[in-house]
Amino acid sequence: MSFKNILENWSAFRKDAEAGGHHKYDHRWGMAINLDVCTGCNACSTACYAENNLPVVGKERFEKGQAMHWMRIERFWDDADKQYPERGASYLPMMCQQCGAATCEPVCPVAATYHTPDGLNAQVYNRCIGSRYCSNNCPFRVRYFNFYSYYETWAEPLNQQLNPDISVRDKGVMEKCTFCVQRIRTANDKAKMENRSIADGEVQTACAQACPTGAIVFGDTMDPNSAVSKLWAKHEVKRGDYLSKKPKQHPEKRGYRIFEELNVDPSVMYLERVREEI
């Protein structure tokens, strides 16, 4: 294979990323997060800890960057915010963006992270050998490495609330947001038992469920009638699009995807926060 060949394949893959690239999808799970109503309350993050068996690492390890928060709230101070601090910071919930052309996948030496037919970046924990290439290649920095065997020291009554539908990861394994795949799996089993496909709104991620302002909408972006697809369409954000965040033409169209310019095709659309220009 020549270098030219590689480039051609690459561009072909990129060009029809909208149609799924070389993947054949049954579903393509996606999200829309309205930053305008996000209050930065961290309920999503807390719900994620409870749902996904995430260990609380403590201050010291947090400072070393060993926190395991699959969902974190990022805080930004714009210049104007600094000038008028009473306006408060801007918040942005950040988790795995389940990229359509994920940079984490091709670098895994053992193929423990791969793309599923429902458009998720899977992480097969028992396959993972902990090389950490994937996290180093992730532009969003949303992959977390287990530096310790937390299950051994899980605080006493809390081990009773571990979720049996998802494994408790051991030391040496990479992990990240899964879009609550265990809930998708349960809904899928239920739907298949009733000979139908998963209905819109049947699967809700823990973060979406916990959000008090309803900022997070989750659903199948391949189903044009799902709530999330309608939001994507309304804000003119498309799969495979390079730059949805065009120069402001319309105040209503606030949708964008983070690092779209890297063309990783994230599955999460954010709706920009509306703030008075000062």
Binding site: Y114, T116, P117, A122, V124, N126, R127, I166, R185
Partner: peptide
């Protein structure tokens, strides 16, 4: 045959 159908 998808890993995530059987692995969690």
């Amino acid at each position: 045959g998808d890993c995530w159908k059987c692995h969690k």
